[in-house]
Each structure stands twice: as C-alpha cells, then as structure tokens.
Nucleic acid binder design. Structure first.
Length: 293
DNA sequence: AGACTTTGTACAGACTTCTA
DNA sequence: TAGAAGTCTGTACAAAGTCT
C-alpha cells in the first residue's frame, strides 16, 4: 500500500505482480474485469525514456475522476502508460453500435429479402461502475531533489532532459500503481455468491418495518427470560438460529463484520450494567405477557 | 445433431477533447 | 502545446439462436 493514499491503492514493481493483484481481487470477489482501455506502452518492456517525454514531480489527479494522484516525493517521473479495466457487468460501451447494427439490418430487410425477427439475447451488462485503474510510471532516483522549490525542480529536470538527449544511460525504476475498487463499488450483480438485493424500500416504509421487527425481537427476548421449559427453550434456540441466519443472508459480509465488531465492543462496554437493569425492570413489567401465554 | 447466422463481448489503436 | 483522459472504430471470437 502507498502511504497517504486510499487503502485501495496497490504499488508493484513488475507487470506480473500487478496482474497477480488483479487476479487475486477477481478470485476473492468472484468478479471479472475486462480491459476498457490500454495504452501502447503499458506493460511494454520496449519503452525507453526520451528527452521529449514530460517530466512530472507530482500529479494531483481530478477530484471526482478515477485517476490516481501521485504526491511529490522528490523524485521526478514520467508516465509510461495506463490501463483501465471495468467490471465485466459494467457499462455497455457498444450499446450504440449494437443499435446501429440492428438498424442496418432493418434497412437490408426492407431492401429485398425478408428478415425474420430473432429473439434478442439479454446483455450481461448492468452498468456496474466498479473499475480498476492502473498507471505505469518511471521514476528517476538519480535526479531526486532535496527540497521542493521551483528552482530545484527546474535544474534537476533540465539535467535529466539533457542526459536523455545526450543518450547518457539514465537509471529509472518502473512502478505500477493500481487503484482497486471496493466491494461496495459493485452494483446490480452478484459478488461472491451475494444475493442481488431488490430495490430499496421507501425509507418511511422500511423504518416502520424495522421498528416492528425490533418490537417482535424485544418481546421474544423479554418473554424468553421467564420461560422455564427446558426442551421448549432448546427448540426455540434452534428456530431463532434459523431466523438469524436468514437475516444475515440479507446482509453483506462487511456489514456482518461490523455487527460482530459491535457485539465484541459491547462485551467491554462499561454501560452494560444499565442495559441489564433495564431488562430486569422490563421483566417485572412483562408479567402481563406471561399471563397471556 | 450439426452447420450456419446473428448477437454480444473483448481488445487495440487511432482520433478527439480537455486541461494545465 | 503536450499529454492525460475520453470516444470511436475495426476486427476477432465465442456463444446462442435458427435452419435443415
């Protein structure tokens, strides 16, 4: 990982390692990425720096874009190439092309022979926005500057360009910086067996249902405290575990981790005594519920 | 069932637009 | 004006649909 960057940035020194990082991501998430764009020299060992290449000291990158910001670290660098991969269920970039092809087909049909309407296949593209952005840069450590002044930059860049122009052997390190998407960046399709979530309910309706679920859970919890029938409790536990599993099936692995973490925190919560007291009070208040049983 | 056709997808490179 | 980023287009291939 690169210091000062988002945790999704991976830095590697060979193409093979970079390919491996992407392969591991695909394996871990059950996703597949296809090349949206690849520049000529990305991963190309034939690339050599020339005096015509632009020298950078930093690269801010657009705020809302997917590009990778490269902070100043004293060493000048050049862009070698970039590669952008998109989730294979991402944007259908050939949509217009397909439409054109169908239109042309129609024209052909009216110009003589009868064209039978064929059942159209369903595209797997669901506009998933997840993308991998990989940059290949070449850093020149021999031209590192101690400070970050305009004068230092100018002098060092000039020295580097002169050396390149005079065919002096300039040492450089190839670096691949790859920005990986998070699981939450995927939309509208399966990830590692996760069920496709139906469209979210209107917030109000959802809130009401959550509230009702909470009430039922609370009632069960309160009533369970007073049940003395051992075999029944055993059956109840089994049923509740099934319900729990069913609920967790509708929650992502990250959310489960959050829940588990919060449960872990509660064990050390000094306020837990207050919760216990509340339950004790509720137990007394629920004698009415007990009588109804 | 196998051959043929159509459609969807993938890749690469050229071209265009935008920006510092 | 150079180079990053975005768009377009040609080509190839695989898979599904259709025909015989």
């Amino acid at each position: 990982m690169m210091e000062g960057f988002s945790s999704t940035l991976e830095v590697r020194y060979t193409l093979q390692d970079t390919v491996e990082v992407i392969a591991q991501l695909e394996l871990a998430t059950g996703t597949k990425f296809v090349v949206l764009q690849k520049q000529k020299f990305y991963g190309n060992p034939d690339w050599i720096p020339t005096s015509k290449g632009r020298i950078y000291w930093e690269h801010p990158g657009p705020e809302d874009g997917i590009s990778i910001p490269i902070p100043f670290d004293g060493q000048p660098f050049m862009f070698v190439g970039r590669k952008v991969l998109g989730c294979h269920q991402g944007v259908d970039k050939d949509k217009e092309r397909k439409a054109r092809r169908i239109e042309e087909k129609h024209k052909d049909g009216t110009a003589g022979r009868i064209v039978k309407q064929r059942k159209t296949r369903i595209s797997k593209k669901v506009n998933c926005p997840a993308q991998i952005y990989s940059l290949q840069i070449a850093k020149f450590p021999e031209y590192e500057i101690p400070g970050n002044t305009a004068r230092d930059r100018r002098e060092s860049a000039k020295r580097l360009k002169d050396d390149l122009a005079n065919n002096i052997d300039v040492g450089y390190n190839i670096i691949y910086i790859t920005k990986l998407p998070l699981l939450t960046d995927h939309e509208g399709h399966l990830i590692s067996g996760e069920a496709i979530r139906p469209p979210n309910l209107v917030t109000d309706e959802r809130d009401i249902l959550i509230e009702k679920c909470a009430q039922v859970s609370q009632t069960i919890s309160n009533a369970t405290n007073i049940v003395r029938d051992g075999p029944y409790l055993k059956d109840l536990l089994s049923t509740l575990q099934q319900v729990q599993n069913s609920v967790l099936e509708h929650v992502s692995s990250e959310e489960i981790a959050e829940i588990e973490e919060s449960i872990g925190k509660q064990e050390y919560n000094p306020d837990m005594n207050e919760v216990t007291i509340e339950i004790e009070i509720e137990k007394q208040e629920n004698t009415e519920f007990n009588q109804c049983e």
